[in-house]
Design a protein around this nucleic acid. Structure first.
Lengths: 237, 237
DNA sequence: CCGAGAGAGTTATAGTGTCTAACAGAGGTG
DNA sequence: CACCTCTGTTAGACACTATAACTCTCTCGG
């Protein structure tokens, strides 16, 4: 992305940055974030340690870049899936959540990087929230026509209140549904995705961090059941 | 625990170990597992670095001990809550999940330690599984009388199959319900807890890792809604 | 009551990693 | 073609894990 027709030097720079990130991803996959070591990366691509500081300000900056890439990647995946959804809201929901779980299981280390434990001392940049909401955008659309049962009504109420307090939330809602905070379905449109995210994350994270190992079920089966319950709770057809 | 009437030396040793673990917990709370540094712990309690190796074989061994303690702690909390549950299964479920979420939010770093990202290179000891199942035991009891709807039936089926393949699972079921794998409700008794765990973990982990920050809802509200859906899906009264 | 030995602590040292400083060469740009 | 920025180097400060070798002290058995 953004390869652009820049100077040959800038082109080479971008290439080296990519190579560094690729090596970092390999180390991430092997031993988690703490295994990403600048000196080892440098050795692997034939550079001296301090040379990497020409490309990334420090170790955190490199991890930061990996986080950005991962968010872009999952958001792209979801949005791509969202371009061709079945008409049935329930089926569409299953399609989206399957895509999410698939991404998490094929890229476990990257999922843990962005949705796992907070990286100590690392404050997510403001645009991370934007990226995260972009990934959840298609879910908002699905629940915009839901009719919540009493089981989920309290969540709907809290979302409605939030929409009247936080402008960015209102913008988010508007972007994907055209609804305003005063619309009777506004809270519902956000309550569904938040619940879906919570379900999704629980299953994906337990699966990816290996805590289901030795138990006789598939994460997919669990997720399907959770989404079926959620669809029922919002009277999705 | 296990203070015992041992020799004064052993008593002093145990005291020092505890002091080390307490300091480690403080560092864990400040900067996550990677901030737990033996040298800094030593300095803080007035020892020289290598002295700590008299008490813990290495850094992993210390983290290991923290994990054990945390599992014991949450299992004790759950079991204590389970000693005085309301008769209604739904109410009992809410009581248990509230206790779980409370523990997680009051001890966020410890929750992340045991239920967060896997610690690279750290293989959970076999008894960890036993401890984890002990914590979920009371949930098994609650779902033993459930009647699953079609939404969760696939999970029930997978659990039933598992129970016939894995003896430890059958033992676990038997310990808390007296049921055998052939009992028609056996799969249901395990499907409920696994789903509940997945729900619980999603909400607790997102809350504890700060990903709900800036969103206008309480984790508790979300959890209540999820458990209400789950109770409905199993026809709990 | 005392002496051997286990246990608890020390310093010294090797190894790995982050990151800064100071310097050298190579490429692009006026 | 001269300048200067960009890219790379080595040297070194600092933090942390871990081992080795050594000293001191307390406990316990005879």
């Amino acid at each position: 992305m953004a390869a652009a027709a820049t100077s040959p030097r800038a082109r080479y720079r971008e290439q080296t940055r990519t190579q560094i990130k690729e090596t970092a991803l390999a180390q991430l996959a092997e031993g988690g974030p703490s295994a990403v070591a600048l000196t080892r990366i440098a050795k692997e691509i034939g550079l001296s340690g301090p040379a990497l500081y020409r490309y990334f300000a420090n170790r955190d900056d490199l991890l930061h870049a990996l986080v950005r890439d991962a968010y872009d990647d999952i958001a792209t995946t979801i949005r791509h899936t969202a371009t061709d959804l079945p008409d049935s809201p329930t089926a569409a929901l299953h399609r989206l959540t399957d895509a999410y779980l698939d991404w998490a299981t094929t890229e476990p280390h990257r999922y843990l990087l962005i949705q796992g434990n907070p990286i100590p001392g690392y404050a997510a940049p403001p645009d991370t929230i934007r990226r995260a909401r972009a990934a959840m955008g298609p879910f908002v659309k699905i629940f915009a026509n839901g009719r919540p049962t009493h089981a989920v009504q309290p969540v709907v109420d809290e979302m409605t209140t939030w929409l009247h307090q936080d402008e960015t939330a209102a913008d988010w809602l508007h972007e994907y549904t055209g609804l305003t905070p005063d619309d009777p379905n506004a809270g519902c449109a956000l309550a569904g995705p938040v619940l879906a995210w919570s379900h999704l994350h629980g299953t994906a994270h337990l699966e990816v961090s290996g805590q289901y190992t030795g138990m006789g079920h598939h994460a997919r089966t669990l997720l399907r059941a959770q989404m079926a319950m959620l669809a029922t709770a919002f009277h999705l057809s």
